[in-house]
């Protein structure tokens, strides 16, 4: 009998793995995206999950925020929060996919498309990649220059119609729409143009550098 319970659970677990994606998306749609209060208590009910790789991240108010853009650029420059808001704004609403399997449907982002920001500073011809650093002091990410020129790669200053909260990586974070969430670096502090792409934080720990949703980290569609 005990054995039947064990085998039954293993069977249910396998069924859950097979159909769980559909059930979970039903739960997500029912609970709604970020606003759901229940997801603050039980992440399984949907919504974002808080990931940080350091023990604590200092809170930065928009008024004190600085984004340093340098490296292989014509005009290295520091942007304040207001400077970013003054540039042409790009909006995009899409599902947010984490490589570990959770998804948040229909998240609205707004900010400066990275190609627009790169045009402001001027990319030098020898630049091949873009390196992002977080002011959490540990996290880094990279894109090839070609990826960085996509219009769905956004320096986000707004999320869900409001500011990007500290927990979600505010006041400014990246949103790399076509890739898994680990490419969308939180607490963005610096952008540097570099001569070659170096793996970022999770990528030195085994994740793919090119993190296309559905076409990386082992998945081929």
């Amino acid at each position: 009998m005990g054995r039947r319970v064990v085998l039954g659970m293993v069977g249910l677990g396998a069924v859950g793995v097979a159909v769980g994606a559909r059930v979970q998306s039903g739960v997500n749609r029912a609970v709604g995206p970020v606003g759901a209060r229940v997801s603050g208590l039980i992440p399984a009910a949907g919504g974002f999950r808080f990931y940080s790789v350091v023990d604590s991240v200092r809170r930065v108010a928009p008024a004190d925020y600085r984004l340093t853009v340098g490296g292989l650029v014509e005009h290295p420059r520091t942007f304040r929060f207001a400077d970013l808001r003054a540039l042409p704004q790009t909006r995009r609403t899409d599902d947010f996919h984490c490589v570990t399997g959770w998804t948040v449907p229909d998240v609205a982002w707004a900010g400066v498309a990275l190609p627009d920001l790169l045009d402001v500073v001027g990319v030098r011809p020898e630049a091949r990649g873009v390196r992002f650093t977080s002011f959490d002091g540990a996290y880094t990410e990279t894109l090839t220059l070609e990826q960085a020129r996509r219009r769905d790669v956004i320096v986000a200053t707004s999320m869900q119609g409001g500011p990007v909260s500290h927990e979600h990586g505010g006041p400014v974070r990246m949103y790399v729409a076509p890739m898994y969430g680990y490419k969308s670096i939180k607490w963005l502090g610096g952008i540097d143009l570099v001569d070659r792409v170096r793996p970022g934080y999770w990528e030195t720990r085994g994740y793919d550098v090119d993190a296309w949703i559905g076409r990386s980290n082992g998945y081929t569609s």
């Binding site: 319970v5 064990v6 085998l7 039954g8 659970m9 293993v10 249910l12 677990g13 396998a14 859950g16 793995v17 097979a18 159909v19 769980g20 994606a21 059930v23 979970q24 998306s25 399984a44 996919h97 490589v99 570990t100 399997g101 959770w102 998804t103 949703i213 559905g214 980290n217 082992g218 998945y219």
Partner: peptide, 29 residues
């Protein structure tokens, strides 16, 4: 049973490379 199921789904989450996205979401679930 829980240890076995957690082991199996945890394996998928810890080594996600060979698994399609639906299985990863299912394992997370």
């Amino acid at each position: 049973g829980a240890i076995l199921v957690m082991l199996g789904t945890g394996w998928i989450l810890a080594f996600p490379h060979p698994w399609p996205d639906t299985f990863r979401t299912g394992a997370t679930f």
